[in-house]
Structures are given as C-alpha cells and as structure tokens.
Design a protein around this nucleic acid. Sequence first.
RNA 1: GCGUCCGUGGCCCAACCGGCAGAGGCGCCGGCUUGAGGAGCCGGAGGCUGCGGGUUCGAAUCCCGCCGGGCGCACCA
Length: 819
Amino acid sequence: MSDEQYDPQALQAKWQQRWERLEPYRAGEDPADERPRRYMLDMFPYPSGDLHMGHGEVFAIGDVVARYWFLRGYNVLHPIGWDSFGLPAENAAIKRNEHPATWTYANIETQANSFRRYGISFDWSRRLHTSDPDYYRWNQWLFTRFFERGLAYRKGGLVNWCPNDQTVLANEQVVNGRCERCGAEVVRRELTQWYFKITDYAQRLLDDMDQLTHWPERLLTMQRNWIGRSEGADVLFEIEGRDEPVTVYTTRPDTLYGATFFVVAADAALADEIVTDEQRPAFEAYRAEVAKLSDIERLATDKEKTGVFLGRHAINPVNGERIPVWAADYVLSDYGHGAIMAVPAHDQRDLDFALKFGLPVKVVVHTGLADPAETGQATPGEGTLVNSGPLDGLGKAEAIAKIVEILAAEGRGRATVNFRLRDWLLSRQRFWGTPIPIIHCPDCGEVPVPDEDLPVTLPDMRGEALAPKGVSPLAAAEDWVNVACPKCGGAAKRDTDTMDTFVDSSWYFLRYTSPGYSEGPFDPEQVRRWGPIDQYVGGIEHAVLHLLYSRFFTKVLHDMGMVNFTEPFVRMLNQGQVINGGKAMSKSLGNGVDLGKQIDEFGVDAVRLTMIFAGPPEDDIDWADVSPAASQKFLARAFRVMAEAGAAGAPGADFAAGDIELRKVTHRTIDEVTRLIESYRFNVAVARMMELTTAARRAIDSGPGAADPAVREAAETLAIMLSLVAPYAAEEGWERLGHGPSIARATWPEADPSLLVQETVTCVVQVAGKVRDRLEVSPDITEDDLRALALASDKVRAHLSGDPRKVIVRAPKLVNIVP
RNA sequence: GCGUCCGUGGCCCAACCGGCAGAGGCGCCGGCUUGAGGAGCCGGAGGCUGCGGGUUCGAAUCCCGCCGGGCGCACCA
C-alpha cells in the first residue's frame, strides 16, 4: 500500500515543477475575459534573509483567500515583489565590503525559491523590486509631481535623529521615543529636510474612513488617534513690547478668563525673540538643558514641570489682564502655534506648572468640585461659567460659541481645527534608497530633474564608502553630485539624500497592475481594471506607517486624475504574530523557530495547515501550543481517503447513486465550509474538513466501501477544499481521483439544498430550565403540536405537579415549561 | 490614568439572532491491530464558561461592578 503513503517531500518535488510549467495562477490579461476580477495582496516582504515564520503565516492566510477566489471562478490578481531598498542591505554591504545590491538580490532569490516551495498562488510574471531603477525612477517621477503641486517641500526645524542608523526619521517611525527599526533612543536635531505635505490631507484621511467598513476597528482607531483632530479656537494675545500679537490655539476658549499666565515652547523662535536681556541667561541655560533631553525623558508623564520666566507680559484680550510669559518644554513648538494660554484651574498640566512656580489659579468654571489650587486636581469637566464677564452662567458649549463670536467680531480670534498629524519627513541620510531628484542651483534654487533625465540612478559605491557619517554617503560621490543646473546650465549640485523606503511601498500595489509600463508609474487603464485591492493582508505594525502613507498617496494620485478611487484597500486583515513559548521569537532569547526547518521536517502542507488551524487569523500563534506533527497526521489521513477513493473508481460517477448518509455529511460540509471561508473563520473550516475526512474514512471501512460514488464525492470535495490550505496533498489527491492538473482550475463545490434538509430534529424539553426529555420531531412541526407532545412526555410530567404556569415553545428545537 | 478587545475541559480553540456547554486538534486513559514499538483504526474520561450582581421562562452570549491579560493612547493645549 506504499502507493497510498503520504510523502510530502516527494509531492513537493513533483508538483512545484509542474505548477511552474502550468502557471495556473497567472492573472488573465485578455480584455475580453468576462470573469469578475479580484485583487488579492499580501504586504510584500523585505529581503532580510530567508522567509521566516511570520511570512509563513501571512502568506498562508492570503493564499486561502486567493485560492478560494480562483475556485470560485474569479480572474484573480495575486502578485509578489520585494521592498528591496533599506538600511540592512547597506549595513551588510559595509560589513562585507560589497555593494548593497549583492546582498539584496541574493536574498530576494532565496526568498523567491522559498515562496515557490511554499506553494503560494502568485502570478510570478508581475514580480517587481523597488530597488530596480525601472521601479524607483517612478518614485522620482512622483516626487517631482508632488513637488510641482507644493506637496513636497523643504524646511528647517527640529527633527528626529536616530544616532544608531545615522539618519532622520519620520514621526511615524518613532515609537515611544525609540527608532521603530533599531530601537535606539531618538534625539532631536535641527536640520533642513524634505517633507510630504500629508497634513493637507488630514481631514480627508479622516473622512474617508467611512469607506473602510471592512477594516479592523482598532486599526481605524489607531489612525484616528494619530491624525488627532481637535476643534477649538485661535486667540490673539498682545505681548507688551511686541508689535504683532501672538496666536495661541486652545480647545477651551470658554476658559479664557481663567488664563493666568502664558507659555511659549522653549525651542520656539518666539521665545528667543521676546526674552528680555535680563532673563536671557536663564532662558538660554534652560533651553540648552531641554535640548539635551531625549524624547523618552521629555515625554515621561510623571516628569516634573520645568520652565523659565521670559521677563515679559501678555495681555488677556478679554479682560486686559497682564499675565506673565514663560518658556517651558511641556508646550510643543510644532503643534498649534507653539504657544498657549495657561488656565491652571481647568487644565492639569497648567496647574502642575502654576503650583510649581507659584502662579495664580483662577476658577472660571463652577463644577461643584473642590478648589484646584487646594487639591492640586484641575477640574477640566463641564460646569457653569463664573468670573467670566459676559460668559457667566453659561454652560461649556454656549460659552465657547459666545466667546468665539465675541473674539471674531473684535478680530481677536476665530474657531479653528487642529491636527496632531505632522508632515511626513521623507529624506534620509543613507545610500540604499531612491535619490531625491532635485538639483540645488545657486541661482535657480531647487530645480527638479527633468522627467527625461530620470531615473537618477545611484552611483556605484560599496563597502566602507557607505559607512554612516551623519550626512548622506552620496555627498562624497563628487562626479555624481556636481551637475549642470537643468534651468540655467550653471554649476549646481544634486540633492544627496535618499527617500524614506515607505515612499516605495506607498504605490507598489498600483505598479503590479502593469509592471512593465514605461509611460508612467502604472497604466491608469490597468489600475481601473484591477483596483482597488479587494483584500490586503499584513501586520498591524503598519497602522500609522505604510497603511497611512498608502492612503495619502492614493488620494494625491486620485487628485491628479491617475486613479479612479480614493481608498486603496477595500478589506484589510491583520494577521497575528507567530510567537514561541509566550514570547516573541528572537535571537537573544534563543527561541526562534526556523520556517525552512519546519518545512523540512513536516512538509509545506502541514506547516501551512498548522498556521491556519491554530486559531482565528488575527490571533497570535504560539508555536509551542500547536502541532505540525498532528497536521501531518491529518493530511496523511485525508490523503489516504483521496487515494483509496481514486483507486476504487473513476471520475464521472453518478453521485446521486451514492450512500445518502455520507452524501448528507458532504453537502453539509460544503455548506458550512463555504460560509466559514467567506467569513474568514479558516480554523473552523479546517475542523469541518477533518470531520468530513472522518466520515469518509468510516464509509470506506465500515460503510458502503471505497467504490461507493458518495465516497468519491466526499473525496473530491475534500480535495478541493483542502487545496486552500494544503495545495500539494490536494493536487496529488486530485490526480489520484483521476483529474488532470491543476486543481486550481477546479470548481468550488455547491451544496445540494435537498441534502441539507433534516427529516427530524432533536427537540429539548426543559422544566424550569433543566433538560428533562428529548423528542425527535419534524423540523416543520407546529408550535401547538410540539407543546402537546412535550406536555405528554412522561419524563416531563414526572417533574410537574399540576398545571404549568407558562410554556415557552421555540419550534422545532426547544420547549421550556415553567411549573 | 483613559479607551478598547478578550477570559469556555490540563492546553490550542468551537458554539447562528440569548435556547442541550463541546465541533475539531493536542495531551491523557483504554481497546483492536502488530513479534515488539510506531503508524493506523475504535472508544473514554475531563467543566460552577475568571468572580459577584442584574435582566430573562432561559445567559458563555445582554447590562453593571470587580479581578486578570492583550492592544492602543497618554504633556498635542
């Protein structure tokens, strides 16, 4: 019976080769192809080495969906590519004294081979690598378009600097004061950098979330928090001795009468401008102190308030009161206007500051709570306005409306909206990325490289030349840097920074629709045909990185008339992590599990099945809790059913002649698995496949036997359903059942409704909520009949002493009698 | 601290709209098979659904409060 042995490695060798020849997963390109289209995408990998367990999970999940769509008859686009620019390649190049491309493309080949073995249903013909000049030239082209529209600009300011990676970072890449990539503490530096004006799209990024009805709620919440919209008012304060008034932003203009001091961000230009000569030494000392703090120290919530008096006073516009102006680091220079009015009675931060420096506290909202000056607890809640002139007696909402009206009439303020979101800092002082296509000309300024000169390719640099020096390595490539200005022809220099690699990934999903296109980043016709992406699968860690940036890019491209939708990803699934023993796998813990070794030991199918069966796709998988060996056992069992059924008969049997009991199981399974796959409960779907396998096994051993058409029907059904998760076993089983390759071209089975109806159902009869009897009844029994039947039951009557008070009938499944 | 999701046999996990707590897997125990082991096949045990209250004829499911955990936010005025 060795013929029915399940030998995963042999099947892999056999079918991987055949699939490569058959290409069953190529997206249909024929414009006359009438099949409905679906676009399935997994977040493309960074080629850091071979594929790891995390990849194994994402791609196994995505493949269930893609393969299901193939079987449902869709024209499916399921592409793969590599996010191949980035720091690790550069670091490897320095260490090995070679070009970053060497390491990068070697890893890509390794991963591509592993993907092929892993049996993912990719359309390999659309493969792309973001580090190819053919790809990154379009980054440059897009950058130029953004620049022309004022969406890419350069400005100076304090930026996040990673001392380990020796480059600046976007706000999104700083997590709790640490570099998102390497974990080093980020410091702040004053630098001139390129930005994308994502803040122009803040409101739309928020509004269009209405379209994202198939995104996980927590992901939307993260983006909402990140964008951080708030409503409030701008209020103008005069500063004694300064001509222009200073604007502050507040969400509580109703508390304006309670402002007892004024705070300017210590690092804001305004502080430096208005500090008096007398206070300057103290201010400068303070500012230097603050500059030394890391983000982690600065943002510690339990940190004591610090600050320094600037020697000046501001005038409260509503009552003319003189209030002292301080500098402090709890006010941020890049939010609002970098200055605030402080209302210590009703804002905890202001109160902490006031109590520390002995500043007055004035209650203007009566909340019924104790005096903040006494308790140290600010009262930020609602109440009735007091000590506030025309606002007295009003509630919060009325007071805000009224004060805004008054301020507006006097030209001293207006209602406004603010966002926490900052512009996207995109320049990086590293080599292995897309050169920014700008030429700096002493006469013409920032001149974009003309489209016909794109791509600006990277100069050939390797090894030590790439070592981080705090400025881009490109600056050292003099032949490359020095160019003629495209406008005036004079001597000029290229910008030496490269783009954040998140630029690359912000539009790659559009390129897949026409990867060879040379007239633009993508063929708008093909994007219309395939887009937007029906299902995207990837990690939640990209919530306010890649997923936010891609949404922004899509909107800009929409405004440019290049795409016909405003949201790129219709449905989003965040898979969980693969962990081991309750902890993330890591080298330092020594608890890593190697995907390749798991596959060597258990086979691709068993590893994939384990990933899918472990639990809901968004849950973490603890590899210590699951059993690839058990998966392999199940696959062997399923395989034997297919092989035995195949050996006992031929395709085309009349299923209707088969064993009715098994047929019912098969069709109930089809019905349930279809629903389970469509609702993404893949783990439960696998459980149903296991049951079907058991039922078929029983039919072979102790029922009608392997030759019964119902057994064949069950086996064929099993093969097709199993192919979503275990393509090798399924494909071989399909062949044993007498079908030609590939199972990817088979049709998803349909349940016969006549086989789903049950002749009888078990009705539970309860007395006072306790089960006392079970009745076999017809599914369409009437309530009255069921009630009579239940009351006639001896077992029920044994628990009744007289007439029941109430009888609840839920035909046909339940009767509850209340005695 | 605030918000949010979650807590079901020893373990991973099911349970449609509130209606018999258990589908599937791991582990454990037993039987058949085998020279033995493994594999295979068949069967079994195992629970106050985190705790306390409430709504209901009926609660794992809905509501409130605790306890424990995950995630997010946390000087953004």
